[in-house]
């Protein structure tokens, strides 16, 4: 693979600086002994200490992560099935119709999704709380997965399947050994963006939650009127650092395990 030049490096550097600027800004002020995100007074760890003292906050953070992971996993599963179904549709008109239906939840503002899901849940008698929030997050993350997987499916060369079939592969083999590996990047993209959807959502969760169950977004938005405390900044800082560490750690581990195989390439 060709080496990356100076100009592209600079370009990427700028993109990354902009992407991380607001996060570093948040983390910077999490060390502020003053009350808010301006006028840095002096350095303190007190907001970090406050995070670990607040058991309710920790429970909420864990709730948020559990919901995000499970909803992303399940929506990815259903979304991949959906993408396969759409891709294999014979009737082009039907295909477009289903694809449009798929995108409705993306275009609908959260208030509408939240309100209509709430009506739906109370109608069929789902108890508001963990289950209703999980189901809603799965529901609004499915379309993004479908959209991420579809282009990979349409890129796939049908001769691959023919070849596999000629070699006597069963239906299951074709799926697990040919199709899924090929669309894997699309699946991962869908999964990660589903995580984003879940972690970012406020309005839908607000409507469908209840019985003491809360997520971080709901908590943060409802603080807006009286002012978001720097404890939340500190918390975001911790989450951010842990996430980056996990991602880099996982990546390094993965490479190490694969290294003996890939070693020759280097």
């Amino acid at each position: 693979m060709e080496r990356i030049g100076k100009l592209p490096k600079l370009y990427l550097a700028i993109v990354f600086i902009i992407l991380y600027a607001p996060i570093f800004y948040l983390i910077f002020y999490s060390f502020n002994s003053g009350g808010g995100m301006s006028d840095f007074e002096s350095f303190t760890w007190e907001h970090y200490a406050a995070v670990f003292e607040d058991k309710r906050l920790i429970v909420i953070v864990l709730n948020t992560i559990i919901i995000a992971l499970l909803s992303a996993l399940l929506s990815t599963t259903i979304g991949v099935i959906g993408a396969l179904a759409i891709n294999f549709m014979r009737n082009k008109k039907m295909r477009n119709a289903v694809l449009s239906l798929n995108n409705i939840l993306i275009v609908s503002p959260d208030v509408i999704i939240g309100a209509s899901f709430l009506i739906l849940f109370t109608m069929i008698g789902v108890k508001l709380g963990f289950a209703s929030v999980l189901i809603s997050h799965i529901a609004f993350s499915i379309p993004i997965v479908v959209i991420m997987v579809l282009p990979k499916l349409s890129e796939m060369n049908p001769t691959l399947i023919d070849a596999a079939r000629d070699l006597g592969a069963t239906r299951k083999d074709v799926m697990t050994r040919v199709i899924l590996p090929f669309i894997q990047p699309g699946i991962f993209a869908g999964f990660f963006l589903a995580l984003t959807y879940s972690l970012d959502d406020f309005a839908v969760t607000f409507f469908v939650t209840g019985n003491g169950f809360s997520t971080l977004s709901v908590e943060i938005y409802s603080m807006a009127r009286t002012g978001i405390s720097l404890t939340i900044n500190a918390l975001s800082g911790i989450i951010f650092i842990v996430t980056v560490a996990l991602v880099i750690g996982y990546y390094a581990l993965n490479r190490k395990m694969k290294a003996p195989l890939a070693g020759v390439k280097k």
Binding site: F16, A21, P22, I23, M37, T196, L199, D200, N233, S236
Partner: peptide, 20 residues
């Protein structure tokens, strides 16, 4: 992955950061 990670931090907080 590093492109996606910033999107996992709460949007309202990031917006406040942008205001600053």
């Amino acid at each position: 992955l590093l492109i996606i990670i910033p999107s996992w931090i709460n949007l309202l907080l990031k917006t406040y950061a942008f205001i600053g």
